[in-house]
Amino acid sequence: MGQLSIATLIAIFQEMLGPVVFWALVVIAPLGLIAFLYVLIAQRGVFSRAFLRAEVIGLIGGTLSVFVLLTLTNSSITDMGGPIDIIALASVWIGGAIGSAMIAYTIIGLLLKRRSD
């Protein structure tokens, strides 16, 4: 077996998403993370009202991620065939939930900060 390099993965994801979407994501993702950290620092901790709303959006986002993946791959929950499938599906849900919650928290935080300014 050979090595799976970062260069190979970049090539594969470029083919999967198209170079424009791929590189846009590469640029946007760190910017989003910086914005999230900025909100956290600016508010000196977690702002509970925004956090609660973000959690609700996270629940929806996680479920939506699973739904989109199942739809894109012509599969359903009943196709889970072993523990690794459940782990993979749960990972998709968790990834979608955390991602959408972070996006929601950042947007809400930025809006609230703007209002308070």
Binding site: Q14, E15, S75, G81, I84, L89
Partner: peptide
């Protein structure tokens, strides 16, 4: 030896981009 959804994912969404990366000599 198990019929798995993750293996289906590899076939359904993983192989085609990998194949095309292979054509470019990058996979």
């Amino acid at each position: 030896f198990e019929e798995l959804w993750v293996t289906w994912l590899i076939k359904a969404i993983g192989l085609k981009p990998t194949y095309y990366a292979m054509l470019r000599g990058e996979a």
